[in-house]
Nucleic acid binder design. Structure first.
Lengths: 225, 225
DNA sequence: TTAAGACCTTAGAAATTTCTTAGAAATGGC
DNA sequence: GCCATTTCTAAGAAATTTCTAAGGTCTTAA
């Protein structure tokens, strides 16, 4: 998340910037109104926080200005005043929220999150991993090759996912045992071999080109040829 | 503009309704939480205002509940308290604003306008969900497939609604237990399986194609094939 | 060339997960 | 309070996956 902070008290800026950064929020700031507008019009922010009283342009005018120019980023106004009339004016001008100083940092953070959330109500994107003509849809737990659906059991799916995430790199059996099976000790089991075999039957056998290759003495690798 | 007011003090309801009507705002109201949820789920409101302390269900749970069911109308919470923690909690559950009693009517009005303005920029929540030849009317709590009505009990309906809202995505049983049953702890119960079975008997069995699929070891998906 | 180790394949036993059913418990309307 | 409906529990059946084990094949290096 990236926000714009318009505030003329440098101490406040510093404090907020530090606090917000700790929560993984990027902060651009401007020390006066016009600089703020300038930044707001040339960058995309998730939220804009502005003190009501800043040099150059007050928070109301600033908000009105932004709205007139089609900038829809949510605006939070900060003020030392507690007059209802100011709040009303702020909201009417197009601000989205209002915080009275002294405010608690926690509250500011919560409001930030609430506001930024509203812009992004799109469902999470489909997670899809691919290698050549092979595709894995992690959202739907589906695997296809050349458009044909391939039914995989959970372990097979996990193994294939590990291969596809490490395509082109040779992965050892020990590594696979650790990452896919959570086996950390030396073991004489041959599960990995068995499952590689299962996978090959489904992923390679029915097709022209094989993509799961054995590197003798080292491990396996997912690649063309 | 049409709003829903959830508030148990009849005097307050009367006062607000009158005042808001004068500003051309239609007001539906509920005297307790469950009635409020019921109304919210079956009507379209521009804004929902709820007291935090109402019989049946508190404002936080109410908000969480609404959000869980995909109702995105802005929510304003009212309270006599002034604790920051409550505000934070309110915003975190998905409320959009917060007013501390006693508030001025003017301020409430301004916030209403601010919130409803922003709501207009996003499409209204869908009251009819579809998947292929299956349709769910949330308003009338009706479900049909190929035009044929399918009688569902409330829990069955909730489960089907969850499936249809997450069509194409594999949802785990734990996730279903959390979202549809509000069970947050580890449980050995098999309610989810039982209800999936009930649903299949009604949704899949009487028809050619099944749409509820088991993904062994992972969960269930709503999809074709 | 040949032996040893690495890898592949297969079948079936074991373990796990899911389905199904019946009935008990809870809920809601009259 | 009673009846009808809905919800949940429990337990065995069924289905599927996972793993083991044993024997076969391939690769490498002496």
């Amino acid at each position: 998340m990236k926000i714009l902070l318009i505030e003329d008290e440098e101490k406040a800026v510093k404090f907020l910037k530090k606090g917000l950064n700790e929560h993984n929020i990027d902060v651009d700031f401007a020390l006066d109104g016009s600089a703020g507008v300038e930044l707001a019009m040339t960058n995309e922010y998730d939220v804009i926080i502005s003190d009501i009283i800043v040099p150059g342009m007050n928070g109301f005018d600033l908000t009105r200005h932004l709205r007139m120019h089609g900038i829809k980023a949510p605006v939070i106004l900060l003020t030392a005043l507690n007059a209802t009339d100011d709040k009303v004016l702020g909201l009417e001008v197009g601000a989205d929220d209002y915080l009275t100083k002294p405010y608690e940092f926690k509250e500011l953070l919560a409001r930030l999150k609430a506001l930024s959330r509203r812009g992004k109500e799109t469902p999470p994107p489909k997670l899809i991993l691919t290698f050549g003509d092979t595709e894995m849809n992690l959202t739907g737990k589906e695997c296809t090759r050349q458009g044909k659906k391939i039914e995989l059991t959970p372990k097979e799916f996990a193994l294939m996912e590990y291969f596809i995430r490490n395509q082109g790199r040779v992965v050892s059996k020990v590594e696979i045992a650790e990452k896919v099976w959570d086996i950390n000790f030396e073991t004489s089991s041959n599960v990995v071999e068995v499952y590689v075999n299962y996978l090959r039957n489904k992923i390679d056998k029915p097709f022209e080109k094989k993509i799961i290759h054995t590197v003798f003495g080292v491990g396996y690798v997912l690649k063309d040829e």
